[in-house]
Amino acid sequence: MRYEHPIGRPGRRVGLLGGSFDPAHEGHAHITREALKRFDLHEVWWLVSPGNPLKENGPRPMEARLARARAVMQHPRVTITDIEARLGTRYTAETLGALFHLYPQVHFLWLMGADNLAQFHRWENWDWIMEAVPVGVIARPGERAAARASPAAQVYRNRRVPGHQARRIMQLDPPAWTLINVPMRAHSSSEIRARGEWGD
């Protein structure tokens, strides 16, 4: 597995899962394995971010988060990278623009949880993201209604691909998004931090 600049092979379908991963846990690994299957992806790249602009407190040091991510997600089709820090990008739209430039022949899919879709309209240039790349939304059972009612989902409601056709998403020009139900594992980064399992 590679941990720095990913190798982007022409024609590959690559899911991008961004986040602070503070800390990475089995829930992240579980949705990654599901995304590989459900969206018919060749690979998933974990974009371990320098920090989330929407969060007040910064995450732990990058090297610690990368090490934890490597321990949690060991899969031949998953790359863990700190490319956002290397590129100096702060927002998802900036990162995507840089990745499009670096990997013009790679087909990307932005992956996010239903909770992120609910606040997606607060992201910098969120509408550009929707217009630039297909989006795969992964929902826990019971989260679908709130995600579908979100401002972003309403604006792009006519571009939604039914969940049972999620494997088609990469064949479509954006804007195109889909929402799939994935039974979740009982893990969350905030709970792990609260229990003190993610040491300082």
Rank of each mutant, 00 (worst) to 15 (best):
R140E: 11
T95K: 05
H107G: 08
A24Y: 05
A24M: 11
G196P: 10
A85H: 09
E34A: 12
E197H: 10
Y3Q: 01
T81S: 15
E34W: 00
R193I: 12
A194R: 15
V137Y: 06
H101T: 12
R159T: 11
R140K: 12
V137F: 05
R140D: 08
P183I: 01
E124V: 14
M170D: 13
Q171A: 14
Y3W: 04
P175V: 11
H75P: 15
N181A: 11
F100N: 06
R12D: 09
I80Q: 02
A98H: 08
P151H: 06
A147Q: 09
H107L: 13
G8A: 14
G113E: 04
P76Y: 00
E131D: 15
F39N: 14
A71D: 11
R159M: 06
V78T: 05
L111N: 08
D40V: 00
I31L: 13
R86E: 09
F21G: 01
N116H: 10
K55S: 01
H164A: 14
R68Y: 03
E131V: 01
R9N: 07
V137H: 05
H164G: 03
P50A: 00
L109Y: 02
D40R: 09
Y156R: 08
V48L: 12
L66G: 01
A98T: 01
E124C: 07
Y3E: 02
